[in-house]
Each structure stands twice: as structure tokens, then as C-alpha cells.
Write a protein that binds this DNA or RNA. Structure first.
Length: 802
DNA sequence: TGCTGTACCATT
DNA sequence: ATGGTACAGCAC
């Protein structure tokens, strides 16, 4: 078993295979699958993952592994298998699948450097560059006087050499400790001998005579109100010593969480949790769909199920959409399980994420709460996987590997023989359909734990407002209600239902809209930098003073951004204190929580924001929720538009009147008759499900069919269309006759980064060979991809059809 | 003849 | 992805 099969860190389809390496003597005893290694690859050195050890290789000229980066495997055998499955299932590269399962800092950093080998003098330019040093970064060659040829010659001469370095991005946090190094009597002697002037040194030394334990340096400095120099003096005298010890960065101070006990369950909750507990007890794997209205106590069910898993000595993964939005969620888990919980989400720094990940890796915790990628937590005895708000789009990763966390969870659940819980007030249609077909087990929670009714939803027809001469974005009823609540000292949440919160600029004179020169999309105005930016390629230009097309100065930014609504709102109700929550006001780290805290402390009357305020917030003083434009998503070319609208309206309605004060919801719309709006206002999920299923059946969309989206891009418009056409043709040849292939169609954003994008959509019910077929097509186009810069990307379960 | 840009090719 | 190489084009 002295040969290792390695997946190397080269994201190219021609490299999407294992490479064999000899394991040198010094690594034979310790090298295991799942460890990272450094291997020579062509002229350079790169990182790779060992997936297997074998005895033989069909390749005869094997190179040796240059180094091993881990002492223990970072991928368990299960995760190695899962990575393979994931890559194949999503038609992605093995390397991208493995990288997706690990924290960012475990990815390799590559550097090149030049070493001076000979003492003899080099060319004047090279001498200047090295400036007496033996090693210099390779990058120093740029903007220097040295030309490439000189370097090549020097290398051939053996005067200098290029080194390829693989650097770890891992940084660890250390705390410095201070401790005495001599026996007590020696310290006492030293204290006597010390000059009377060194007051602080004496104090410190006296302290350590009574105290032989190591103490954190910073706390000593604080306690004695002194500085490092005092300590250094004692260290120099050989009386004290400092040493460093690694500590985890802990983003949450565990002690600040109030401990909670299990709550008494309602009858409904008990009925829902029973089969889950049974599953846990019997090591059985079922997928449970927990359909519970907001406030029905889903989280308590999660907590008590997890308790069973912990008692059994097993581990739990809890996925939440985006945890920084719900500090309440962290609080509940830390409150119940204390330091037995690791938290993984995008609000943490890379270092913090790594430390939390390591607490899982080292089995220091049994519970992980985190966003999408936490589904890969390296536990080996999983007892339960929970996906909260399972309908959320953020569980689908939109770049390679394009996976859905739900699929991964179910796969891991089957492997570990443990239950998977999908919880939501508005389950994804796919999930509910599966529950309906008894593929998943359905549990319904129809009542709130406090038995409060859901707030009344009043739908306001904005067309009538217009006819009545009200041209503002606030209906009369919303205005009156807001004033009434604010005067009573209650609070209001206002939701602007917009997917993009971008503001584009348009000339009022000629209608010219400023677009990105490289992409077919309007540029977005950014107030803080007064720049126009492209969200797709990061192109930037200053905000023009005059219209580039007609030179008029009537160029303004457009779009009903939250800023404009805020302005209108302060005009409409001058006494209201408005808190605006959007990308601009939440950009800074922690800004999000700060704003929410301000609102919780009643520093504002109205919280105005986009989708981000719809989820998981719980303010007891909020009695009115207003939705300004409920139908703005309905016109998007997205077959899930109705579903998303229904989900959003239901979620946001749950924000009002959760406590003692009764709540009310006002929904403004131009299409009050639309079933998603009408049924959301009645909280009728079942009716919505049935109606929407009919639509999906009629137009052949999921869950009636599976989708696959292939996007082809090329700098040349014609080439892009032609290649897509060819792909469509060869698909037609090999799929069943019931399968539908649409395309070539231009992608909704037809050009990005100067590349034209065409797509083809496959709608199928049963195509077991589809992935093989797509891979075959990929290979057919290998030449075009390598030589002529054609790009083909595949999404086996598209959520965003761009 | 020597320098520069580029297409192509292999990587265990 | 990325570095090496063969080769074409061009100035001297």
C-alpha cells in the first residue's frame, strides 16, 4: 500500500481524475486517505487530497509525495465518498466538491520565489533586485529592470532557482502566558537582591512567589498596571518565562447565554416529535417534513430531538438559512446545549470559521448550527440532521459544485441511519409533494404554542388607490394604521418586496439607461462612493453629471430603493423615526445586529427593509406589518415566482403580534386576485399547494419534472449560438421522446464579461443516463473548450434560471 | 540571428 | 490552471 491516489488542486476537466504518487518511506506509517498532501505536478508543486492507498499503479513513472499537510485526515472516509457522489451528481469537478466541504483556510495558497544559488556576481539588474538577499518573491520581477530572458539564462547557469511553494492559509490565535522559572527560594533571593528602584519588578516577582501557576500575560499587565518591558526585564534575568498557547477564537461568549430547560410540549408537538424520537432510538432513517405555522414551536422540537441524540452519544447538524439574521437561533441552541455547540456561518471571519470547524473535527462538540456548508460537518456518528426553513433558496449553492443542502442531508442521513428533519411554515413544493406521496413523513403543527391567532391580513388594491387619486406608494389605510400604531407607542415593520435592491440611473430627457460596457445589464448606483458599478463583472465608473447620450443634466437614479421610500415616509409621517435596513446600511460587520437591537430597544418606530427583515425576527412591540408591493416578484420570468411570493407573505405576516398585542398585516398589491396573494392572506397553504401544483403540471415544471440547465458562453455571439445548437441536437439524439429540450435561448443576462451566454433547458421525468450524456458532450467539446475558450456550465437543479 | 508573442500540450 | 516548448513573425 505504498501508492497514494490523489485528487489534485487543478480545477480543469482534463485533470478531473486521481493521480498516483509513491509514498516515501518517512510518510508510510502515518499517511491516510483524507489527508492533504503536496505533490509535484509538472514543473510546479500543488496541493492534493489523498483519496486512497493502493499497492499498484498502471502508471510506471511515479513521482513521490513531497509533503503531508495534516496529522489526521481532514476528510472522513464518509466525506471522501460523499465528495465523489456530490461531484458526479452535480456534474462538477472532484476538487471543487472537496473544497466545498472544508473551511476556506484549508485551501492552499501558491507562491513562487527566486533563490540565489551562486556567490558569483549576477547581471547588474539581478543584483539590484536581490539586493543582498538570498530569497526574493517571484512577483518582484514585475515592474523591475530584469527581463525574462536574463532570468532564464541565470536559471540555466545554475545561478538562481525558482521554488514553488504551497503555503497554508491557516492562522492560529495564540495567547501569551507568564510563569516563574525558578524555585520559590531562588525567587525570594532574587527579590532581596533587586535594586530598590525597580518597584514594578518587585511587585511582579512577589506575586509569582506566592503563585507558581502560569497566568495570562495580558491579565498580569492589567492587574499590575505595567507594561511588557517590566516583564521582559524579569525574563532577561531568567526568573520568569513567557510561552504561547493556542486558543480558539470564540465568536460567542458562551457564558452570556442563559441556560434553558426543555419546555413542556403541546399535544401537537408531542405527536410530531414521537416518530422522530422513535427513528433516533431505532437507528432508522426517515425524512420528516415538519410543517408548522410560525410560532408553533418547531425549534423546541429540534432541541428535544437533539437532546435524545446527545444522550445517545451521537451528533447533530442543524442548518439555518443565514444565521447572522437570527441571533435568536444561536441563543436558543447555546442556551440549551452551552459549549457543546459550534456555529458556522458567513458572518464569522475565516479564522473563526476554522476554529469552529476544528471543534467539530476534534469531537469537542456534538452540535453544529450553521448555514449551507455546515451540512458537511465532519461528524462520524450523526444522529440527526435538521434543516430549518427548508424552503429557503440559500440552501442551493449557485457556484460549482451546484448542490442543494437538502439532497446532501438526505444522502448523509441514509448513510448514518438517522432521521432528517425538514422544517418550514411554507414548505417547498417539491418537499410537500414528496410528503404527500409518503416519501417523506409529514407532521403538521397547526396551532401556535401560545394559542394566539395569526394576525389579520388586509389586502389593499393599489389600483383603487390610484383611481381615488392617491399616487403615493402608501395606501390610505396603511398610512392611517401606521399613524395609529405609532401614536400608541407600538412599532411597524415595512417590507419592500424587491429581489434586487439596486438603483439604476436613467436620463429623464432621453430615457438613456447606463449599462455595463461588458455585460448586458444596467449599472447600479452606489451612493457611498458615488460610483456606478456592475454586479456581474465589477466594472466601475464615476456617476456622470450629464447624460452620456444627450448631455442633459436630468440624469437621476431610479428604482424604488429603500432610500426613496424612507424619504417619502418621513414626509408622510414626519414624527416617525425610521430605521432603514438594506445592503447599504448593513454592509459593515455586525451592523445588522446593531440595527435590530436599536429597533428592539424602541429607538425607532418603523423598520423598513427588504427580504432580510422577513425572517425569524421576533419583536414583541410590533403590531403592524406592511408589505409595500406584494406582487413585484410575480412578473419575473421564474416558475417559482408564485411560490416565493406566497412564502414571503406568509413569513412576513408571522412577524406581527407574536406576543400579547394583537397584530395586523396590510398587503398592498396591484393584483389582489392572484392566488398566491389571496391564499397567503388566508394562511391557506394546502389550497395554495394544490393550485400551484396544477400550474406546475400544466406547464411541466418541478416537481412534475426534473430540470437541468446548460449554459454556454463565448466571446463570439455566433459561436455561442452555434455551439448551443449543436449541444441541443446531440441531446435530442439520445434522450427519451418524452423529454423536452428548450433552446438555444439567450440567457436572461445575455452577455457577461464580454461573453455571450446561451442556454438550453432540459425537462425530464426519467433520464438515468443524463449525467453520462452531458459528460460525453463535455468531452466532445473539449477541443473547443481548451483551444477556443468555449465555456459550458451545468446546473442539475437550477433555482436561478440565469 | 535573436527576440517576442502565441498556440498547443502535458501534468502521476 | 499553468508552465514549457515549438514555431511564426519581425527587426537587425
Amino acid at each position: 500500500m505504498n501508492i497514494a491516489k490523489v485528487i489534485v488542486d487543478v480545477p480543469a476537466s482534463s485533470i478531473n481524475q486521481t493521480f498516483d504518487y509513491k509514498i516515501p518511506e518517512r510518510f508510510r506509517a502515518m499517511l491516510l486517505p483524507g489527508m492533504r498532501v503536496i505533490v509535484p505536478f509538472g514543473p510546479r508543486k500543488i496541493m492534493g487530497y489523498v483519496v486512497k492507498r493502493v499497492n499498484e499503479s498502471s502508471f510506471d513513472k511515479l513521482k513521490e509525495i513531497a509533503d503531508v499537510l495534516d496529522l489526521t485526515p481532514i476528510l472522513t472516509p464518509e466525506l471522501l465518498e460523499l465528495g465523489k457522489w456530490l461531484a458526479e451528481k452535480t456534474v462538477s469537478l472532484y476538487i471543487t466538491a472537496f473544497q466545498a466541504m472544508l473551511p476556506q483556510v484549508l485551501k492552499a495558497n501558491y507562491k513562487k520565489e527566486l533563490e540565489r544559488l551562486s556567490r558569483e556576481s549576477l547581471s547588474a539588474e539581478l543584483e539590484a533586485l536581490f539586493a543582498g538577499r538570498d530569497f526574493i518573491p517571484y512577483g518582484a520581477l514585475e515592474n523591475s529592470q530584469v527581463n525574462f530572458h536574463q532570468v532564464q539564462k541565470a536559471i540555466q547557469n545554475g545561478d538562481i532557482a525558482v521554488h514553488y511553494l504551497v503555503k497554508s492559509r491557516v492562522t492560529k490565535k495564540y495567547v501569551t502566558y507568564l510563569k516563574p522559572t525558578r524555585e520559590v527560594h531562588l525567587l525570594e533571593e532574587a527579590l532581596q537582591d533587586m535594586s530598590g528602584r525597580a518597584k514594578k519588578q518587585q511587585e511582579l516577582l512577589a506575586f509569582f512567589i506566592n503563585q507558581s501557576q502560569a497566568i495570562e500575560l495580558n491579565s498580569v499587565l492589567k492587574q499590575f498596571k505595567t507594561t511588557r518591558s517590566t516583564v521582559n526585564a524579569l525574563v532577561d534575568k531568567g526568573l520568569l518565562a513567557t510561552f504561547k498557547q493556542e486558543v480558539y477564537r470564540n465568536p460567542y461568549d458562551d457564558h452570556t447565554f442563559e441556560e434553558t430547560e426543555a419546555l413542556e410540549l403541546t399535544v401537537e408537538q408531542r405527536e410530531a416529535i414521537e416518530p422522530i424520537k422513535q427513528n433516533i432510538k431505532e437507528n432508522a432513517h426517515d425524512v420528516f417534513l415538519l410543517h408548522g405555522v410560525t410560532g408553533s414551536g418547531k425549534t423546541e422540537i429540534y432541541l428535544q430531538a437533539i437532546q435524545d441524540v446527545i444522550d445517545k452519544g451521537e451528533e447533530a447538524i442543524v442548518l439555518v438559512p443565514e444565521i447572522s439574521l437570527t441571533p435568536q437561533m444561536v441563543k436558543r441552541f447555546k442556551g440549551r446545549f452551552g459549549s457543546n455547540v459550534a456555529v458556522l456561518h458567513s458572518g464569522l471571519s475565516n479564522g473563526e470559521k476554522y476554529d469552529e470547524w476544528r471543534r467539530v473535527h476534534r469531537r469537542e462538540v456534538q452540535v453544529v448550527v450553521g448555514a449551507r456548508s455546515a451540512v458537511f460537518a465532519p461528524f462520524e456518528n450523526l444522529g440527526i440532521i435538521i434543516i430549518d426553513e427548508e424552503h429557503e433558496n440559500s440552501y442551493k449553492q449557485e457556484d460549482q459544485p451546484r448542490y442543494h443542502a437538502r439532497d446532501v442531508a438526505v444522502h448523509r442521513g441514509a448513510y448514518h441511519h438517522c432521521p432528517v428533519i425538514l422544517g418550514s411554515a411554507t414548505p417547498a413544493l417539491e418537499s410537500y409533494a414528496r410528503a404527500h406521496k409518503a416519501v417523506y413523513k409529514l407532521s403538521s403543527l397547526t396551532r401556535r404554542t401560545n394559542d394566539k391567532a395569526m394576525p389579520d391580513v388586509n389586502v389593499v388594491d393599489m389600483r383603487k388607490e390610484l383611481h381615488a387619486g392617491n399616487r403615493s406608494m402608501f395606501s390610505r389605510s396603511l398610512k392611517e394604521n401606521m399613524e395609529k400604531r405609532i401614536n400608541r407607542g407600538e412599532q411597524v415593520v415595512l417590507l419592500l418586496n424587491r429581489r434586487g435592491y439596486s438603483t439604476f440611473i436613467m436620463c429623464r430627457e432621453c430615457g438613456h439607461v447606463r449599462e455595463c460596457p461588458h455585460c448586458d445589464i444596467a449599472l447600479t448606483y452606489h451612493k457611498y462612493s458615488n460610483q456606478l458599478k456592475c454586479h456581474y463583472c465589477s466594472y466601475e465608473e464615476p456617476m456622470p453629471l450629464y447624460c452620456p447620450s444627450c448631455n442633459s443634466d436630468l440624469i437621476r437614479f431610479f428604482g424604488t430603493g429603500t432610500q426613496r421610500i424612507e424619504e417619502a415616509l418621513t414626509k408622510l409621517i414626519p414624527q416617525a423615526r425610521v430605521l432603514r435596513m438594506d445592503v447599504d446600511t448593513t454592509r459593515r460587520k455586525g451592523a445588522h445586529e446593531k440595527l435590530l437591537n436599536q429597533f428592539a430597544n424602541k429607538k425607532a418606530d418603523i423598520l423598513l427593509g427588504t427580504q432580510m427583515i422577513a425572517k425569524g425576527l421576533d419583536f414583541e412591540n410590533v403590531t403592524l406589518v406592511g408589505v409595500l408591493t406584494a406582487d413585484s416578484m410575480l412578473n419575473l420570468p421564474d416558475f417559482r415566482a408564485s411560490e416565493k411570493t406566497f412564502q414571503l407573505l406568509t413569513q412576513v405576516s408571522g412577524r406581527a403580534g407574536r406576543h400579547d398585542l394583537p397584530g395586523e398585516v396590510i398587503v398592498q398589491t396591484y393584483t389582489p386576485e392572484h392566488y398566491s396573494i389571496e391564499l397567503a392572506s388566508r394562511y391557506d397553504y394546502w389550497q395554495f399547494y394544490q393550485q400551484e401544483m396544477q400550474m406546475r403540471k400544466k406547464f411541466q415544471y418541478p416537481p412534475y419534472v426534473f430540470l437541468a440547465l446548460i449554459t454556454i458562453s463565448h466571446e463570439n455571439h455566433v459561436k455561442a449560438v452555434q455551439s448551443t445548437q449543436q449541444i441541443v441536437k446531440s441531446l435530442w439524439k439520445h434522450v427519451r421522446k418524452e423529454t423536452v429540450i428548450l433552446g438555444p435561448t439567450p440567457s436572461p443576462i445575455a452577455r457577461v464579461k464580454d461573453r455571450y451566454r446561451y442556454q438550453c433547458m432540459i425537462k425530464y421525468k426519467h433520464e438515468p443516463e443524463l449525467r453520462t450524456l452531458i459528460n460525453k458532450i463535455n468531452r466532445q467539446f473539449a477541443d473547443e473548450i481548451n483551444k477556443h475558450d468555449l465555456q459550458i456550465s451545468v446546473d442539475m437543479q437550477p433555482y436561478q434560471l440565469m
